[in-house]
Computed example of a mutant assay.
Amino acid sequence: MKVTLFDSPPPDASRAPIENILELTPVTDIGADVFTNTRALWHPPGARGIYGGAAIAQCLAAAQLTVPPDFYPHSMHCYFVLAGDAQLPILYHVERVRDGRSFATRTVQARQRGRPIFTTTLSFDREGSGGEKKVEHTVSMPDVELPPPSVHDSGPFETRRAGIMNKDTSAPQEKAVRQFIRARGTISASDNHRAHLSALAYMSDSYFIGTVTRVQDIPRFSSPAALKQALSQLKNPSDLEAEAINRYTKDLAAGDNKSAKLQGITQSSWYDDVDTPRQKKEKRELGMMVSLDHTIYFHSRRGFRADEWIFTEMSSPWAGEGRGLVMQKMWAKDGTLIATCVQEGVVRLKQDEPLRNADTKL
């Protein structure tokens, strides 16, 4: 079974890794506004399907191919319908809902086996259509130092944790998870900044819904065996090489070890080779965490580069009823607020008794 509809060409060395990963191929035999992923997509360890940022970014990339070059996205509202299978190609169907003088609307459905796995509605506006006089205000970027240069050179983007604001409070809603993120390499300047916007969309899903468990100090993996099982399910890591996968799991290990200590668990490490019995007093184990929707409000569309450090701050104002809500602000390195994102997801704990009428497959 092929993971792409057509044979994948070799990566273009003149483009950044994230550009190669997000490249689309037109499928003209089906329709004028139908595209497919050119290369295999990543299935993160422990996830139910492909990395959600890939569907977000490729839907945006497909929609951008159907609007005039001076139109830029200002909002994108997405729903994760089914888990994407990394072993199957995805077809992106774009519908041209409206074309006006100042605004344009597109919907995109990502489909596998003829069924939608992801759907989004995007709104674009023409650059400069707001006039010379403007209503303006913005949230200032916190005073933080940029990370040092990276010593690694693998994977499409890199992240650096920048701590948790108010980490000692007992109120999860008052905490904020901070990190830096950027695309590796140098993004080409040949597509009117569209590659930077797609890259931003791709990276906006990094550790997003996981903010709920981080501010609640709930470990993602309950034991070394759980991690091993997740790694065994890894499919087509096209955008993460072995070194990057190793660092990814170490990063999860560091966070989960901290959560374990805060909850009074005496394991020396979540990632020891031998499982250690969990203390009976530990009752909060993550049972399911799945993104339901994802919204991006693009602010300064051309006021940033996705291959330079972007500072993000994520907070969770509410969690309950088996769901959690996360807000994310993203700033360029010069302090410009470039995007605000919102995501809701299923966040369920393991139960002592099975939930009645619960949808375990979503």
Rank of each mutant, 00 (worst) to 15 (best):
F208C: 05
H93R: 12
I117C: 10
E23N: 09
D168E: 14
G131M: 05
S316L: 09
H152E: 12
R126V: 06
K329S: 10
R182T: 03
R305F: 07
A47S: 14
E241A: 15
Q229A: 13
H294S: 04
A254R: 13
E313H: 05
V290L: 15
Q263M: 14
E308M: 05
S238L: 06
T249M: 15
A260W: 15
A201V: 01
K361Y: 08
M76T: 01
R194A: 10
K133F: 05
E321V: 03
D256R: 01
T138N: 06
T38L: 03
W270N: 11
A226Q: 07
E145Y: 03
R356V: 07
T336Q: 14
A86Q: 02
M165P: 00
E158R: 09
N246T: 11
V108H: 04
R178G: 04
Y79N: 12
R323N: 07
P354L: 12
G345C: 10
D307M: 01
L231I: 08
L88V: 03
S316C: 11
V108R: 06
E241V: 03
T169Y: 09
F298L: 09
F80P: 00
E158Q: 15
I310E: 01
Q343C: 09
K283E: 09
T266Y: 02
T312S: 11
T159C: 12
Y248W: 15
R284I: 02
M1G: 12
L349Q: 14
F157I: 03
F35V: 04
T4K: 05
L262W: 03
V177D: 09
A242W: 02
P9T: 09
K329C: 06
V290H: 05
M141N: 07
S269A: 11
Q112N: 04
Q233E: 13
I90L: 13
F103P: 01
R161V: 03
L231W: 09
V27N: 04
R39L: 07
P68L: 06
R323C: 05
K228C: 03
T186W: 02
Y271S: 13
S223W: 03
E321K: 15
Q351R: 15
K167P: 02
I30W: 01
V346H: 02
M76K: 03
F71A: 02
L286N: 11
P69N: 13
A332T: 06
T38S: 14
V177L: 13
S206I: 08
L24R: 01
E321P: 02
A176M: 14
F35W: 15
R161I: 05
T336M: 08
A61L: 10
T266K: 15
